[in-house]
């Protein structure tokens, strides 16, 4: 079970994640994007999901990553991501509810390059019961 005391709390990712041109190139290649000056609109999920995994699976929160299904996803992109961006990524647990034996959490992630907010992403994650 997810610790209900975690709702409303923001957990800061400790890592600084540097975006490389090679990462943008490989993500772009999968979807057939040939202009790689900026990252595709969903690129930031590669940062958010790995940060979610390290943050949400901490014992004090208790998400079982092996039973996780992605329910929905939203991005607000203040500017496109480019190679050389160095992000810190937070995870704020906005809501937690239980439906049909599944735990459903909505998490907001804010990606900052220094003090500049670049992308806010919301994910609904379903932990299957």
């Amino acid at each position: 079970m997810i610790n209900p005391d975690s709702v409303g709390r923001t957990f800061k990712g400790v890592e600084h994640v540097t975006v490389t041109q090679a990462q943008i190139d490989s993500f772009s290649a999968v979807i057939g994007e040939t202009n790689t000056e900026v990252a595709p609109p969903t690129f930031s999920i590669r940062i958010s999901l790995s940060q979610y995994e390290s943050i949400l699976t901490q014992p004090e929160i208790g998400v079982d990553w092996t039973r996780l299904v992605h329910g929905d996803q939203k991005f607000e992109i203040l500017r496109p991501i480019v190679a050389g961006d160095v992000f810190t990524c937070s995870a704020t647990i906005e809501t937690l509810r239980v439906a049909a034996g599944n735990e459903i959490i909505s998490v907001r992630s804010d990606l900052h390059n220094g003090t500049e907010l670049v992308v806010t992403a919301w994910s609904t994650l379903v932990v299957r019961g």
């Binding site: 979807i31 994007e33 000056e37 996803q73 939203k74 991005f75 992109i77 496109p80």
Partner: peptide, 20 residues
Amino acid sequence: KYVSDWAGGSAQVREFSARF
């Protein structure tokens, strides 16, 4: 990619959401 192509590139996309 579909949306970016129509809008004129990845940099044109400001919000994007979907449910799976």
